[in-house]
């Protein structure tokens, strides 16, 4: 996956190197600035079995900061924020690959280095009983639930092996 670009991000970003499963590490730029989730919107995307984006709606494009062309065909981990521990994504993948629904609070990284929190639901797309891909719908989370998730993810990150 392409590294984030210094010219795309807001001032004051910190640089990170993010290790990725089955891929080269990716350079990130991470800002402390949050972008509020817009009221009444749902962010919707679909991926294939490998997590490659096959569909994204207008709200996804708007909140991610990427264009639709930049998102299509990219791994969904293009939004992965270093504050979310690996174990959260392992749980997500294991759950949906088992044909079940996963729900959780996720901090997403925008193209410009800023972030936004979502309450995400991911479901397997079963066609004729076979999983053909996954659909994810994100909605506006409550701030108290975000605070709980932040505390949990901090603890899990501290326990995570480097």
């Amino acid at each position: 996956m392409r590294d984030m670009q210094a010219q795309d991000v807001v001032p004051g970003c910190e640089q990170w190197i993010q290790p990725l499963y089955a891929e080269e590490p990716r350079r990130l730029y991470v800002s402390e600035e949050e972008v509020p989730y817009p009221d009444g919107r749902l962010i919707v995307s679909s991926t294939d079995l490998e997590g490659i984006i096959t569909f994204c709606n207008d709200s996804f494009v708007q909140m991610s900061g990427y264009s639709e062309e930049e998102l299509m065909g990219q791994p969904h981990s293009i939004l992965r924020h270093p504050d979310i521990p690996r174990v959260a994504f392992v749980d997500l993948w294991q759950t949906v690959q088992a044909g079940k629904r996963w729900q959780g609070y996720v901090k997403n990284l925008r193209k410009d280095g800023r972030f936004y929190w979502v309450y995400a639901t991911v479901v397997p797309n079963k066609r004729g009983g076979v999983i053909k891909g996954y659909t994810s719908v994100r909605r506006k989370p409550s701030r108290s639930k975000v605070a709980e998730a932040e505390a949990l993810y901090k603890k899990l990150l501290a326990e995570q092996a480097p």
Binding site: S46, T121, V122, V123, T135, S136, V137
Partner: peptide, 13 residues
């Protein structure tokens, strides 16, 4: 099918 998948994400289980 996609719309039905989307609805399933919105309805409580």
């Amino acid at each position: 099918e996609f719309t039905l998948d989307l609805m399933s994400t919105l309805v409580e289980e």
